[in-house]
Simulated scan of single mutants.
Amino acid sequence: MASGGIARGRLAEERKSWRKNHPHGFVAKPETLPDGTVNLMVWKCVIPGKQGTDWEGGYFPLTLKFNDNYPSNPPTCKFPAGFFHVNVYNTGEVCLSILSDTWKPSITVKQVLVGIQELLDDPNPSSAAQDASYRLYSKNIAEYKNRVRQQAKQYPSRV
Rank of each mutant, 00 (worst) to 15 (best):
K65M: 11
Q111S: 09
P75Y: 04
G115W: 05
K50C: 04
T32D: 03
V38C: 07
L113I: 12
Q151Y: 09
V38R: 05
V109L: 06
V159Q: 13
H22Q: 08
N87W: 11
G5W: 06
Y144K: 05
R10G: 07
A81D: 08
Q151E: 14
R8M: 08
L62S: 03
M1T: 14
E31C: 10
G5D: 14
T37C: 07
Y89N: 09
V109N: 09
L40M: 13
R15T: 13
S138H: 03
A129V: 11
T63E: 10
D131W: 08
T91V: 08
T32K: 14
N140A: 09
E13P: 00
K16G: 04
S138D: 01
A152T: 13
G4N: 11
Q130R: 13
G9P: 01
S97Q: 12
V159A: 12
R149Q: 15
K29H: 14
Y59V: 03
G57M: 03
A81I: 01
C77P: 06
V159P: 00
K29T: 06
S3V: 13
A152Y: 13
P34W: 07
V38W: 01
L11H: 11
M41K: 00
P123F: 06
P30S: 14
N90E: 15
Q111V: 01
A152C: 12
L64Q: 04
F66C: 08
A142Q: 08
F83Y: 12
G36I: 03
S157V: 04
I98F: 10
M41H: 00
R149L: 06
M1V: 14
S3K: 13
T53K: 09
P105V: 09
K78I: 02
L11D: 09
F60V: 02
R158C: 02
D54C: 14
E143R: 12
F26E: 01
Q150V: 13
S100T: 09
Y144I: 02
R135G: 01
K153S: 09
P156K: 08
A132H: 08
A128H: 06
W55P: 06
K153L: 15
N124D: 15
R19G: 15
S133A: 14
S100R: 15
P156Y: 05
R8W: 00
V42F: 06
E93P: 02
A81W: 01
L11K: 10
E13F: 06
G52C: 04
T102D: 11
M1N: 12
I98W: 07
Y155W: 15
N39Q: 10
F84Q: 02
L119T: 09
Y144V: 01
L99E: 08
N73K: 12
P105T: 08
Y59C: 05
S138N: 12
D121K: 04
P156G: 07
C95L: 08
N21F: 07
L64S: 05
P23A: 08
S100E: 12
G5E: 12
G52Q: 07
